[in-house]
Every structure is written in C-alpha cells, then in structure tokens.
Amino acid sequence: MGRRRARWTGRPGGAWHVTARVAVVGEALVDLLWPTGSREARAVPGGSPANVAVGLHRLRRPVTLLTSWGDDPPGALVGEHLAAIGVDVVRLPTEGPARTTVALAYLAENGSAHYDFLTSWTPAALPLPEDTAVVHTGSLAVAVEPGASRVLELARQQRALGRMVVADLNVRPAVRPDRAAYRALAERLAAEVRVLKASDEDLSWLYPEQDTEEAAETLRALGPELVVVTRGAQGAFGLTPAHRIAVPAPEVRVVDTVGAGDAFQAALLDALATRGAVPTEPEELRRVLTRCARCAALTCAREGADPPTRAQLDGTGAR
C-alpha cells in the first residue's frame, strides 16, 4: 500500500490533514475461540493492536501495523489475514527465532470472553514510518517483556518529539498476574501518552479499592489530556481536567464482544488523527465518543473481531 505523507509539522498544534497516518505498535496473534459447552475451538487471527489496525483500515485511515509473528502455522494464518485485508504491515525484526502468540479465548453464553495466552514479544527495533502522526499501542505490547520496555521508551520518545501518543491498557492479568507490578506499568504508560483508554474491568482489576471514576482520575492525573473508559452495555465516558462526558451504548443484538474495544479504539484514533488535537470541549468530545460507541456496537452484532467500514459506521452502507 502506498503511503501518503501527513501534513504534520512535528509539534503540537501543527497542521494536520485527514490523511494523517496512524502507526499501531503491538501484537498480531491467533485466537482459539472456545465457546462454553463446546468440545472444539476455532482458530482466528486477532490481537488487539492488529484488530485496531484492521479497524482503521476499514475506516479508510492510513495505518501501518508494526508487529511480529513466527514462521509457524499460526503465523501463516496471521500473515494471510493481514495480506487479504490489505493492511500496511512492518514485520519487525526479533531477538532470536520469532514465535506467534496464541490466545485461548473462552466464550461465555452472554458473548463475553476470558483469555489465556502463550506469548512472544521480542522486537529488536521499532521503525516508525516517517509520515506517522499518531502512535498507538497497548495490550500485550506493553505487558510482555522484553518488548514492553522498548514500546514504553518509544512512547516517551515520540511524545517528546510532539507526536500524538495514544494507548489502550487492555489489561491482561494472565500474562502479568502481579497486580502491583501491572499497576506500576499502567501508571508509567499513562505518564507517556496524551490519550489513554481503559475498560471498567481493567480499572477494577488494577484499582480494586477505587470505583471506576476514581481509578480513571488517578490515571488522568499522571499526564493524559483525556482518559476514556468503556463500560460495555453501559456505554463509555471521557475524563478531561475540566469535564466528564458520558455516552450510552447503542442497543444491538450481541453475538459476541470479541474486538469491540478494538473497534472503539480504531474510531477514537481516526477522530484524533482527523482533528490533530485531543477533543476536550464537551460537545466535541460527546460526538467523538458517540461515534466510537456505535463502532463498538456494530462489532458486537457480528461474530469475532469484524469492525465496520466507514460507510457502515456512518450509516451509508450495508452492515
């Protein structure tokens, strides 16, 4: 895929354009979807950052996914999936032989998923495209070493350069069960980004002694201009230094929730790249979050991580 240069000056407040590129840094993996009561699992390509990149591609946002996978059967599935969709991919060099991460996704009858992971994340370098305007990361990419430390350092460097850095915590206790260590990691990440997203489940695990809004404010006070919290069927809210804006979740027939948070994040990144600034005014933030919630809801109405196209999200195309 050809890369169009974003009109970005390299400093906050610079000129942006709707073609501003998002660089997504993190894992592509294979989900083994295992429904309750079933004796069989189904292998599908996924990974939160990869899903976000696919979502951005479907929204017609220039996007590059920086990821890695192994020369193994799960890796072949990942590579074929991304090539078929047409996502621009930088397959990262790794330290030693690469192995594809595999996630066991246990699906409950209500469509929710519980995960366990066999992980590998050892990027030797993280070369961003020159025209990157927004950098996104999160999930296993900031939790699994040695790659996590390198991604956090990348976030620090890129924010210092003036690029918009965004993250989705997407907490995975299965890969880092030490709550205090995970909380310290989340707080370090919060200090390096301008926008941070988390789910209410993420926050309740990280801060069991606080309610959702207190935990969100704890993270916002560390540096982000905006913290967005998703709450499943209860919608989402955004927290800035001056405002708390909540939006409802559209009513849909839920097939499963796989990829819903990633679809929400793709819509959020698309809005940030279009604006070139963090939406902090109440009505602007409400419009952004409403569109993100719709993107997540459309994904819940379909099986697996299957985010909508821009036409579907805008209501001009078939679902």
Rank of each mutant, 00 (worst) to 15 (best):
P224W: 05
G138A: 15
E153K: 09
W205Q: 04
R156V: 01
A181K: 09
D211M: 06
P177F: 03
A167P: 04
V135N: 00
R183K: 04
V229H: 00
P208F: 14
M164N: 01
E209A: 08
A184G: 09
L169Y: 12
T218V: 07
T212K: 08
P177N: 15
L152C: 14
E217R: 07
T137G: 02
L169D: 02
E209K: 07
V171Q: 04
V142G: 01
R156T: 08
E213P: 04
R172W: 14
R163T: 10
A191C: 01
V229T: 03
A190Q: 01
A148I: 04
V195C: 09
A215G: 05
R188H: 13
A233E: 10
L226Y: 08
P146W: 11
A160G: 04
T132D: 02
A216K: 00
E217S: 06
P177A: 01
G162P: 06
V195F: 10
R179G: 08
N170E: 02
E145G: 06
A233I: 01
R172Q: 12
G147A: 09
M164Y: 00
A167H: 08
A190Y: 11
A191M: 05
G138M: 08
A155H: 05
R163E: 05
L152I: 13
R220H: 05
A181P: 05
A174R: 11
D168M: 13
R194E: 15
D202M: 03
S149P: 11
T218M: 09
A184P: 07
R183V: 09
E187T: 06
R176T: 07
R172P: 03
A215K: 03
A133Q: 03
Q210T: 08
A184W: 10
A221M: 11
E153G: 03
A141C: 14
L161C: 14
E209S: 13
T212A: 06
A174T: 08
S204W: 05
S204A: 13
V165N: 05
L140N: 06
L206G: 03
A143I: 12
E201Y: 10
V166D: 00
L222I: 13
V195W: 06
A155Y: 03
S204R: 14
H136Y: 02
